[in-house]
Structure formats: structure tokens, C-alpha cells
Design a protein around this nucleic acid. Structure first.
Length: 131
DNA sequence: TTTCTCACA
DNA sequence: TGTGAGTA
């Protein structure tokens, strides 16, 4: 099934969304099993609406930015309930994420500098022997 | 094609 | 955080 209802552009099958976003249908079911998506059902078959598609876009963006599914789930669960709380949560998570990335960048710079020092020492010894 | 579940990385 | 395989 690629078109649950050809008349209705608002409906998507799991295969539609998987191919549109380049992910597996398994991944989409996995997100559902974690509570991040809750498509309607016709029998056992999932029917996704624009709203579900919008949530999937947010899930994929969150993942790309390095957030866990748990983080994303917490954020999405506030989507309808409390916008102010949602913005606060997001701000906090973004701060955490930025802090982590900055620590990692510092660690990387330290490691890079250390490796450069080692390389420089090694090259100095080589030129001494050669010369 | 889609579903679910279990094992596995 | 997913994937593969078997199944109905």
C-alpha cells in the first residue's frame, strides 16, 4: 500500500514515510513502540496523518542533533499540553547538548595538540639521526 | 505489503 | 537504537 486514500493527501502509509525520509519501516515501528508516534489503525495497518509526519520530522531532526529518543519523546509529549513547559525543556536540553559538545571539542583539541607534539618530537629525532 | 515477536549487535 | 528472520 502506498496510498491509503488517493483522494486524501493527508494520509500516508508506513512505506510512504519510510521512503520519503530514507529510513526503514522497522525504524518507524520502533519509534511507535517507544511512544514517539501513534498513528491511527485500520485493522492492524497503520495510517499516518500530516501530524504524525510532522512528528517524524521532529524525531529525525532531534536524532540528527544528537538527542536520545527519550529526550525527543519528553519533548513531543508536551507538544499539545504545555507550550511554555515545552520551550523550557527544549532550552534545557539544548544547553546540555551544547555543553557536552563543547567539552568534547575541548577534549579533541587537547588530543590533537598532544598528537602534534608527539609528531614534532618524533620528527626532531629523525632529523638529528639523519643529520 | 504489512503485521508482530524474538534474538542479536 | 535499531536490524534480521520467521510468520500469518
Amino acid at each position: 500500500m502506498t496510498r491509503p486514500d488517493a483522494e486524501n493527501q493527508d494520509l500516508f502509509s508506513i512505506a510512504d514515510l519510510a521512503s520519503e525520509f530514507g529510513i526503514s519501516t522497522r525504524a518507524i515501528r520502533f519509534y511507535e513502540s517507544k511512544g514517539l508516534l501513534s498513528p491511527e489503525r485500520v485493522g492492524a495497518t497503520r495510517i499516518f496523518r500530516k501530524r504524525d509526519r510532522a512528528r517524524l520530522i521532529l524525531i529525525l531532526r532531534g536524532k540528527r542533533l544528537g538527542f536520545t529518543l527519550r529526550d525527543i519523546s519528553d519533548y513531543l509529549s508536551l507538544y499539545d499540553a504545555d507550550r511554555a513547559q515545552q520551550v523550557n525543556l527544549l532550552a534545557g536540553k539544548v544547553d546540555e547538548r551544547l555543553a557536552l559538545l563543547e567539552r568534547q571539542r575541548n577534549d579533541l583539541e587537547t588530543t590533537i595538540n598532544e598528537l602534534r607534539d608527539i609528531k614534532q618530537l618524533a620528527e626532531q629525532r629523525l632529523t638529528k639521526k639523519a643529520g
